[in-house]
Nucleic acid binder design. Structure first.
Lengths: 246, 246
DNA sequence: CGCGATATTGATATAGATCAACTAATGTGG
DNA sequence: CCACATTAGTTGATCTATATCAATATCGCG
């Protein structure tokens, strides 16, 4: 039971993002190092800035985010974390977390002790490279967020966020035909894009009325991917995903 | 001659950012893998999006930046690269570069072939971890840039950029008493902070008149570090530097 | 039912963009 | 060594995207 689930979780991570298949032996060993699943409710801070985690946490279901807090209490989302993403792997080489991690929906996670990863690296040297790779994807997304917030106007920022999320979710089988669950409130979207919730509200409406995308009731439908991508100046190259099936 | 220079370059990287000292043997081996120094003039694109580099490029002197280009031709700086920084190390695990790299001043670089790094990893396993760490620092800075652009107003963004650059340059001995060379034009600062050059001009003046920082003639003088840091909501923790000497 | 979150809408304010000169410094070729 | 082009910086006038403030609507939920 639990063994199967762990194998599935291991595969989701090891295959979801990179495309090449690890040896069965490596998948098996990685799965063996995973904790049982743990649950957290929506809208809870689960990792805090300054902590020195001794385990790495892998998101299995639901959505979470990394965020920084400003003096005035406002927060800035730094990334959206989707199933298959490590929430805090960078804290392993870095030592300390430099931001908080909070859930957006109910989530399930599994953990792997840093020690166990070290042992796995010794046995399967390319595992370390794969984890390095996965933290570099975070970096690539960060760069894209800088571009998005720095250079796009409101409608483009939101379009870009939706395109990116669609592409990432599709890669792990959680979006089909441009339709996916999206637990962020308009306030959250604003915190991701450097906008107020009022302006997000008006901009989301423009996207809907323009026939580009419909975001409501915690669900997104992308109506015209080509025009949405053009608006958000989005190309998914930086995600290093295999070419889209659909 | 050249051997000494390479050893110095190797040390600058290996010691500059991490604090712990590598074995002499490792430094020696790393130095031995470095190319002779190469020069590039200011304001030249030296690495292009889409390239698949086969060497990693280490900046030895001068300043460079990573940047993305928008449809309208405007560019967004994604990071500032200082002496001791790798410009494209992330392209080694990632495969392709997802952004351009351009010089801001005249620069000197050295390169190390990816193959040579692989061989070094086999001999000195913690070297790989150290390079992973250094790419994670880029990620930490990216996150801070997202916060800066998303949540701070113009004067705070520029204050933050100056604080960050001061801290990083001080760590490699290129800033003293809050004074350092800074080859960015006001246009460049705008491209880093998501502002127009006109607004940068007015904002820099406010910093000067407020006695916070003086940026002119390609040189920065930080006049009141505490107030500047408060304005930019800057704490250097994310840089993972040893505590400031001064 | 009534409360707390979220979404929606309208009125108004403002930070920063845009447009347009103009100045200062630097370089260049004749 | 001057005429001229080029780049960076400065300043002023105006415009606009987005923020702010405030009220109302909706809805799941205890």
């Amino acid at each position: 039971m639990s063994g199967d689930q762990q194998r599935a979780d291991a595969r989701r991570f090891l295959l979801g993002h990179v495309g090449t298949v690890s040896s069965d032996e490596a998948v098996e060993a990685f799965a063996g190092a995973l904790s049982p699943r743990a649950h957290f409710p929506a809208r809870r801070t689960i990792l805090r800035r300054g902590e020195r985690p001794r385990v790495a946490t892998l998101l299995v279901s639901g959505m979470a985010c990394r965020h920084a807090d400003g003096r005035d209490g406002y927060r800035q989302l730094l990334s959206l974390q989707l199933p298959g993403d490590f929430l805090d792997l960078h804290a392993m080489p870095l030592g300390r977390l430099d931001h908080d991690v909070a859930t957006l929906s109910d989530v399930e996670v599994v953990t792997v002790a840093h020690d166990a990863l070290e042992a796995l690296f010794a046995r399967f040297p390319d595992l370390e490279r794969r984890l390095w790779f996965s933290t570099l994807l975070d970096g690539a997304m960060h760069r894209e967020w800088i571009f998005r917030i720095g250079r796009l106007e409101a409608i483009g920022r939101i379009a870009h966020l939706l395109c990116e999320t669609d592409a990432r979710l599709a890669a792990v089988g959680l979006a089909a035909n441009g339709r996916f669950e999206f637990p962020l409130t308009q306030q959250d979207v604003g915190e991701a894009c450097g906008l107020t919730s009022v302006h997000v509200n008006r901009t989301v409406r423009r996207l809907r009325e323009g026939g580009l995308a419909d975001l409501r009731d915690r669900e997104v439908r992308i109506l015209d991917r080509a025009r949405l991508a053009a608006l958000g100046e989005f190309t998914g190259e930086y995600l290093h995903l295999p070419p889209r099936a659909a």
